[in-house]
Design a binder for these strands. Structure first.
Length: 427
RNA sequence: GGAGAGGUGGCAGAGUGGUCGAAUGUACCUGAUUCGAAAUCAGGCGUACUGCAAGGUACCGAGGGUUCGAAUCCCUCCCUCUCCGCCA
């Protein structure tokens, strides 16, 4: 959510910033509504003040046992205009909210302007892609040859875009999550959380998935009761911890790490990445979330991204860091780094982590504040990043660590989590 | 799933139609007292919008309704607690 004050006072600046995202937004409706709002709001409050004071008089007169009919007649004349003003004002405010809730965040100043992923800027590369002396298989072929990755059975059980892992591969999946959690909780100082996988609509509003992106979510209907939604990322339950809170300044920064499954309907992604476990309805992710003082968010963003990179380096997986351009950034983000891991079968880097600074955008939606130097409530800044997507990490290991005989070497940092197992062998 | 009781300021807790944005206690902040502290005394102490200011407006779980007037009455939803049943 953008600051409505900023829209009122610097509409052109806001419009310019949003235009950089690619689709210029028409603010003529906003201007029309705003012109009406100011006078209507003043007038409504004036009428309310009159009504309140007259009503008080009625109370006083009646309390003294006097006749109040004259004053009651007087307040009666206000009735129609007041009612009409209140109704119209409520309509206007609702329209403002709808406009505001649908506007994406302003890109940070140092975000490159571009239309799509072609405009992204590579920041760094780490690691050297391995040279194979045998034909490289993609992760689906490697996993199925091991007999430990079974899409056909998953499709029977649930449908397309689900996977069934078995044996050592299932264990490696678990080991990855444990390894990531330990690294962030112990080495990086994050507080580990276990959080709900189903959330209410208010939480999804808070982080920005609703109202615009409902079709991306799995919705659980419960008869008369309010629906719940399966979380698309741990960002939702974790960031909403501070929704409607006013924190003490000393409480910041908050740093949370949380491993959850993530559920995405993948509506509109038809045909993309249908093979393999790159794009699934259900995948696990270890998520990093920080709630920080506004002056700290830029530094925190670098720190958090670096902490995600550490996981890739410990796993010895080659990757690159990319700064997303204005046209490729997510709805709520002010600035985003993607980490892309090397996938030899595709001969390219693929996204495995997305680390974003949301500035005050989410905090304003969810009214997450802290008491500043002047003891006044001020919006926090929020950040999050994958550290990392577990399923895609498993994909990267299958491809990068495959051997000519069909086995897959277990990265050394994972071995303590797998009973010392050094290699996945066909079942 | 059945039966019942509740949601008021950081916390506790009063308030069942009118001078209530809300008593009181406690916590917290400032000052006085003190060598210092405790105790005591005085003042302050929710959020947001609006106004140069004085002030005005909204908010008593959320939304709607009745009324000249709603924390208080009515409806829907959300949440909490107690007992019974079921359950990993």
């Amino acid at each position: 959510m953008l600051d409505i004050q900023q829209l009122r006072t610097q509409l052109d600046t806001v419009a310019d910033g949003l235009a950089k995202r690619g689709k210029p937004i028409d603010f003529s409706e906003f201007k029309t509504l705003e012109a009406e709002r100011k006078t209507l709001q003043t007038r409504t409050q004036e009428l309310q003040a009159q009504r309140n004071s007259l009503s008080k008089q009625i109370g006083m007169l009646k309390g003294q046992g006097k006749d109040a009919s004259e004053v009651m007649a007087q307040v009666g004349t206000l009735g129609d205009e007041l009612k009409a003003s209140e109704v119209r004002l409520a309509e206007l405010l609702e329209q403002f909210n709808a406009i505001l809730a649908a506007l994406p965040n302003l890109p940070a100043d140092d975000v490159p302007v571009g239309e799509d992923e072609a405009g992204n800027v590579e920041i760094k590369r780490w690691g050297t892609p391995r040279v194979f002396d045998f034909p490289v298989k993609d992760h689906t072929d490697v996993g199925e040859a091991l007999g430990q990755l079974d899409f056909a059975t998953a499709a029977k059980i649930a449908g397309s875009r689900f996977s069934l892992l078995k044996g050592g591969l299932a264990r490696m999946h678990r080991a990855l999550a444990q390894f990531m959690l330990d690294t962030h909780a112990v080495d990086h100082g994050y507080t580990e959380l276990y959080a709900p996988y189903l959330v209410n609509a208010a939480s999804l509003q808070g982080t920005g998935q609703l109202p615009k992106f409902e079709e991306d979510l799995f919705k659980v209907l419960r008869g008369e009761q309010d629906p719940l939604y399966l979380i698309p990322t741990a960002e939702v339950p974790v960031t909403n911890i501070v929704r409607d809170e006013i924190l003490a300044a000393e409480a910041l920064p908050l740093k949370f790490v949380c491993h959850t499954p993530c559920f995405r309907s993948e509506a509109g992604s038809g045909g993309r990445d249908v093979r393999g476990m790159i794009r699934q309805h259900q995948f696990d992710k270890v998520e990093l979330v920080q709630i920080v003082h506004p002056e700290q968010s830029t530094v925190a963003h670098e720190e958090l991204t670096r902490q995600a990179e550490v996981i890739l380096e410990k796993l010895a997986l080659p990757y690159r860091r990319v700064l997303l351009c204005t046209g490729d950034m997510g709805f709520s983000a002010a600035k985003t780094y993607d980490l892309e891991v090397w996938l030899p079968a595709q001969n390219t880097y693929r996204e495995i982590s997305s680390c974003s600074n949301f500035a005050a955008f989410q905090a304003r939606r969810m009214q997450a504040r802290f008491r500043n130097d002047k003891n006044k409530p001020e919006l926090c800044h929020t950040l999050n990043g994958s550290g990392l997507a577990v399923g895609r990490t498993l994909v990267a290991i299958l491809e990068n660590y495959q051997q000519a005989d069909g086995s897959v070497t277990v990265p050394s940092v994972l071995r303590p989590y797998m009973g010392g197992l050094e290699s996945l062998q066909p079942l």
